[in-house]
Write a protein that binds this DNA or RNA. Structure first.
Length: 616
RNA sequence: GCCCAGAUAGCUCAGUCGGUAGAGCAGCGGUUUCGUAAACCGCAGGUCGCAGGUUCAAGUCCUGUUCUGGGCUCCA
């Protein structure tokens, strides 16, 4: 969720901000009535409403949300005035700490005074409810639209987003100016859920997750595998044209490798526990077991690719060297983070590493971004994503653990990326503290149907690991120099990318990607032979075609084809068999179009070869 | 990992006060079926996530556990 900052809002947005912010206070007031002794955290407006965090005296369940809503509506009706009062710091501390007994608010108040240099703190009081708050608020609770908000869910949230802190209970709410806007949001939410990749993944037989295999370890069903294969084929073609060479590396490596690259110990909690090979030794008085080798499931492909780079002496003439692999990786994600295909423990990454000189970085970075642009264009992804320049945060207190301590290199590499992005004319937003430990990157961020933001693709600049691994090439002056490395994955991982595509297309894939591209159905049994013949012809073109010879009525079979979101349905009967034609019905359209089979075949071939979004 | 909530047939869901399990769709069988979103009849399908406990009796109550969902942290 994004916090809405109040500073640069239009008048319209500012009013909504006041409403949401004020409703948050009303919610807190209602919670205090229902659970006296509750202490307060933060309660800001967010993109579609607001939330408030509490440390509750007694747990609250979602079943109690309607009761809270009712209390809020009573408060609104009472028309409590919001009154502001500014107090000098010391007086404010006393009020919050002693009178209000709000330890978390007090912590924040001290921070505002001590770190941000505030001299006074502002408070808002409405009815019996007093809260330290910057405001602004509406004048009276009566101005709040009682029918335009809805308490949505209860969630856990750490105080100040830090898992070392106490976990609070967060109540999320939708809030708008009018009941119509709220209803529209609720409707939109329901529609979005219909496109949820977990639902469609099951309905369309794309993937399955089985307890006995393990959580976060999806099984790809035949339909899902087709989609993966097509994406891989696309990547192979584009990467071939851009001068990549394909490699294959094992799923395991000895643990020592990751210490050398620097992934360990920092990344240890992101890896599966190691596999240990043991040997028994006779000693006096018995036997001891000794671990002789430790292997890790690879959490990323880069160390393996680096070893390929290091396997031969490299000259500047070999650069840029571009090594590509759809590589399987395993990461030990926290169980609570796992979600369908979006967040998994086993994944297959559209990975490649580009080894180049510092002079080549700009061009290589731009080429990767251009490859990225082509991929997104082919897939018809236009505006539901944004690019994030993820950099380090030198002020992060944990920065020493999070980023390699090479300030000049961070600055230089970030400049390289900015320059490349500006030259290629791609808009991006710079965000501190999201960089990899070894360098800055461009991440492509998208939102899932449920509103969560995820990274789909990434292009990372690494100025650090090659030196750690001692990777060198010989330059024109016969000196050994560390290469720079780009880690890039325009198609991300199959898991997350396919999840993204399922939701983006609502399960209705373009013909080239669709698991079943053409379904052929005879209007009645006597034409089954003709239908089968067409299927055979199409399959000889490597088209994924299937006949529907079931005993269902034509209406039923059409319906089945449509709910299965098959892009092209051919209906054939006496007329078609007579003149060797087909009648085409496309997914989502009620119109039909008759044409000679050979014409359909040619159009289909073209659509697939060009990866067209629709059949011309 | 943590907080909250769930888990009943392949899917979507019902199951009252604790009294021994139900529907629709999908599947299977049969009948029917010649033109674009659900023909008709029948059959089968369940250790009610799993393990304990309370009880004469547990899908229902209690405890533990596994998994899922919504969040937080983390992240492709």
């Amino acid at each position: 969720m994004e916090d809405a900052s109040h500073n640069d809002l239009s008048a319209e947005e500012a009013e909504l901000y006041r409403i949401r912010h004020s409703l948050a206070h009303v919610l807190a007031q209602a919670v205090l009535e229902l659970r006296p002794g509750t202490t307060l955290g933060f309660g800001p407006p967010i993109a579609d409403g607001f939330y408030y965090d509490f440390v509750l005296s007694e747990p609250l369940t979602e079943a109690e949300l309607p009761e809270l809503e009712k209390k809020m509506k009573h408060i609104i009706k009472r028309g409590q005035k919001f009154e502001r009062e500014d107090l000098p710091a010391q007086e404010a501390f006393r009020l919050i700490g002693e009178d209000m007994q709000e330890p978390y608010k007090l912590e924040y108040a001290r921070e505002l005074v001590e770190k941000n240099g505030l001299e006074t703190l502002s408070f808002y009081k409405n009815g019996p409810f007093l809260d330290m708050c910057e405001g602004p608020h509406v004048d009276s609770t009566r101005q709040l639209p009682a029918g335009a908000f809805k308490l949505r869910s209860i969630a856990g949230a750490y105080w100040r987003g830090n898992s070392d802190n106490v976990q609070m209970t967060r109540i999320y709410a939708w809030a708008y100016k009018t009941p119509e806007e709220l209803q529209a949001r609720i409707k939109e939410h329901k529609l979005a859920l219909a496109n949820d990749h977990k639902k469609l993944g099951r309905d369309l037989d794309i993937f399955h997750i089985d307890d006995e295999i393990g959580k976060g370890l999806p099984l790809w069903l035949p339909n899902g595998t087709v989609i993966r294969d097509e994406l891989e084929k696309l990547a192979r073609e584009l990467e071939f044209k851009d001068g990549y060479e394909r490699v294959v590396t094992p799923q395991l490596a000895k643990v020592g490798l990751y210490y050398r690259t620097g992934h360990l110990p920092y990344y240890a909690n992101g890896m599966f526990p190691f596999l240990e090979l043991k040997e028994r030794h006779e000693v006096e008085g018995g036997e001891v077991e000794e671990v002789v080798e430790q292997y890790a499931l690879k959490p990323m492909n880069c160390p393996h690719h680096h070893k390929i780079f290091a396997a031969r002496p490299r000259s500047y003439r070999d650069l840029p060297l571009r090594l590509a692999e759809y590589g399987n990786c395993y990461r030990y994600e926290e169980s609570g983070a796992l979600s369908g295909l979006l967040r998994v423990r086993g994944m297959c990454m559209n990975d490649a590493h580009i080894y180049c000189t510092e002079e080549q970085i700009g061009d290589e970075f731009k080429k990767v971004m251009d490859l990225h642009r082509r991929v997104y264009e082919i897939l018809g992804l236009q505006d539901n994503y944004w690019m994030r320049l993820s950099t380090w945060d030198p002020d992060d207190p944990k920065g020493k653990d999070k980023y390699v301590d090479m300030p000049e290199a961070w600055e230089a590499s970030t400049r390289h990326i900015r320059a490349a992005m500006d030259e290629i004319g791609m808009p991006y937003r710079e965000v501190k503290g999201e960089g990899a430990f070894y360098g800055p990157k461009i991440d492509v961020q998208f939102r899932t149907v449920t509103g969560r933001e995820e990274t789909a693709s990434t292009n990372q600049l690494d100025f650090c690991v090659p030196a750690r691994l001692g990777l060198v090439y010989t330059n024109a002056n016969d000196e050994e120099v560390h290469p720079w490395v780009l880690h890039r994955a325009p198609l991300g991982t199959h898991e997350r990318f396919v999840a993204f595509l399922i939701e983006h297309y609502g399960g209705a894939f373009p013909t080239w990607l669709a698991p079943e591209q053409v379904r052929v159905m005879p209007v009645a049994a006597p034409f089954a032979g003709y239908a089968q013949k067409l299927v055979d012809e199409l399959r000889s073109d490597f088209v994924r075609a299937r006949p529907d010879l079931s005993a269902d009525t034509l209406n039923k079979r059409i319906r089945t084809a449509q709910t299965s979101k098959i892009p092209n349905t051919l209906v054939v009967g006496e007329r078609e068999e007579q003149d060797g034609s087909v009648t085409l019905r496309r997914y989502g359209s009620r119109e039909q179009e008759s044409m000679p089979f050979e014409e359909f075949r040619a159009r289909l071939r073209k659509a697939i070869a060009t990866r067209a979004m629709v059949l011309d």
